[in-house]
Design a protein around this nucleic acid. Structure first.
Lengths: 341, 341
DNA sequence: CGGGTTTTCCAAAGCGCTTTGAAAGAGGTT
DNA sequence: AACCTCTTTCAAAGCGCTTTGGAAAACCCG
């Protein structure tokens, strides 16, 4: 069933039917109702491609996931982010298209996306420090919103990010106030912008108390469970082992917990752990009392806000880029306590 | 840059340029090279929508994620599945479009997808027992592959699934052979087909040894960490507590481990745990020696196979539906041991 | 060199929609 | 009744590509 058939069936022109369907005023209410009814009955849906061709808009948003060739991990945060974004898209009638692109041919990939015209805008995931994609996309002129930010990029661009530096500064400071002096940092990959910021927050808090960061207590890797486990185990075997850990992900924190238990130690009493908590739906951090003391910020909410921002950017391309800095809450759970003596 | 401009620039007709670009034989090698070179230099990319309109194919695959209104969780398995499928798609030049659809308007949603013509085929996620979507899609005539199967659906359809029943039967049997008699089942939601099959495998193994399933030891819920924790904690407080658990997800198993530790017990020695392991990239089950004894099957691989199957179904729609049953390996880790006496 | 074959290229139609510019119809005014 | 103004409807062009049905050019061979 297409427009032509529908209009023939109604004995109206395609123009009128199209207008009736799209809510234009120059069609009488009576015929509009008649058209709507027929469309409903005959199960008519306009063809997306044809509509896109005619209007120049595709009603779809692209999400570009960089798939690193060496670390071919899917960021666990991703699922919840797009769930959030998807809520907004479906409300506004947008589709979501995913492009997994290998990092080596990113350069052409964005050009491609632009000229192939599949999407009206894109969300950029996983920005690194000084991310070239931002300049590239600005030049290309495709509306985009970055989930995160990119240090050293001085162009204006739209982003939604959590205050990573502030959060880790606060977490570190909280541990210091509990008397901890040796604090392990189990960070994500530090070429990623968020991880870079987290480390700088950690270092700032240490510096504020006159503590020197110890490279032996600072790790950076993909945030898997096993990374948390290994790093914590190794650090706990040091002569001057840390009494606390700051983790970039609840998954890593779970690995830390495993190492702590295996070493015969008890969380909070012997070793404190604070983790960043993205509020992943399948890894809730406890219910009434959180398992881990955490810096909490909902990635699903970030998805919603990024989507919202992108859609309004598409609606009003002349607007100045917006930005949104989300604060992470420090929530006290059962994994922190005063430093042992 | 569009075809018209490119052809004018080359002083050729659009036809010839199009043919040269798409590898048709009726164009001389010399002009083909010339066209290819110009396209490259001028950064020409055919417009997807226009191409789709003209060819009737959209070169995109839809993934429909049912977003339950009450349990609005994103299945953690999803990320790795699409990573696998995405590999195939990008190799074959397909895009991936995600539709999160609320379960209440599923009926119309598939019709929509079909008539809006955004995709050439779809992957159906999360089939339940007697899933109505299968009949619906068959009727609509849109190629599809189900990730999983649906008990009680008697139509032929294409699917890729892991042998859930066999896996859980084997896991249960393994525990029984270790001397366990009270075995807790921490299953996923049992209206989901995979969970239903897992339970039936569990029950079958019990029955084979003349053991009666005890409803007090069987739970069914969304596979979160906290669910594993709570369920295990409660069962461990029973008068005749289970000495082993069978978990549907490594995430749930992590919750069980937490409950076991909290109860002052030791994994393998006091309580055994076997889990299904989808080989999630951020939750590797150990490295050399697995943490958990597990039934392992890569969901990423399943994604690849489902994508492959769908693409060939699209290429040859007349083919009979195919199917692929993946076997899960039983791998021995550090979470199982002989039943304590 | 003329006729047939093959190669190379092209004009135009069509995919399903929106939208412009214009015409027809209805209603009101003098 | 003639004129004007809204309202309602329409025919046709256009979005960027593919593809059909030919035509022109090149080639081959007796």
């Amino acid at each position: 069933m297409n427009l032509k058939q529908l209009s023939e069936h109604l004995k109206l022109s395609q123009t009128t039917v199209s207008r009736a369907l799209n809510g234009y005023p120059e069609v009488s209410e009576a015929t509009r109702q008649r058209v709507l009814k027929a469309a409903q009955d005959l199960n008519y849906r306009p063809n997306t491609r044809a509509k896109g061709l005619a209007t120049g808009r595709s009603m779809a948003i692209g999400h570009v996931i960089p798939v690193s060739t060496q670390h071919e991990m899917v960021n666990p945060v991703f699922g919840d982010f797009i769930a959030g974004a998807g809520e907004i898209y479906s409300r506004e009638g947008y589709d979501m298209v995913l492009s997994l692109i290998a990092d080596r041919d990113e350069a052409s990939a964005y050009q491609d996306i632009r000229s192939r015209g599949m999407v009206d805008g894109i969300i950029v995931h996983g920005p690194v420090i000084n991310d070239v994609r931002i300049a590239m996309l600005s030049r290309i002129g495709l509306p985009f919103v970055v989930h995160g930010r990119s240090t050293d990029v001085n162009l204006p661009y739209s982003w939604v990010d959590v205050n990573n530096r502030g959060a880790f500064e606060r977490g570190t400071q909280f541990l210091i106030e509990l008397g901890h002096r040796r604090i392990g940092l189990l960070n994500g990959l530090e070429h990623m912008d968020y991880a870079f910021r987290r480390r700088s927050g950690y270092e700032r808090a240490l510096a504020a108390q006159g503590l020197a960061p110890d490279p032996a207590l600072m790790r950076s890797a993909e945030m898997t469970e096993i990374y948390g486990y290994r790093a914590a185990r190794e650090m706990l075997m040091l002569g001057d082992a840390p009494t606390a850990f700051l983790c970039s992900s609840i998954i890593t924190a779970i690995g830390v917990r495993r190492a702590v238990h295996e070493a015969g130690l008890t969380l909070a009493r012997d070793v404190s752990v604070i983790t960043f908590d993205d509020e992943l739906s399948y890894l809730q951090n406890g219910d009434d009392v959180p398992i881990f003391t955490a810096l909490r910020s909902s990635v699903r909410q970030a998805g919603r806000q990024a989507a919202d921002m992108l859609l309004s950017l598409i609606a009003r391309p002349k607007d100045a880029p917006g930005s949104q800095l989300l604060e992470a809450d420090l929530i006290i759970g059962r994994s922190t306590g005063p430093a042992p003596r």
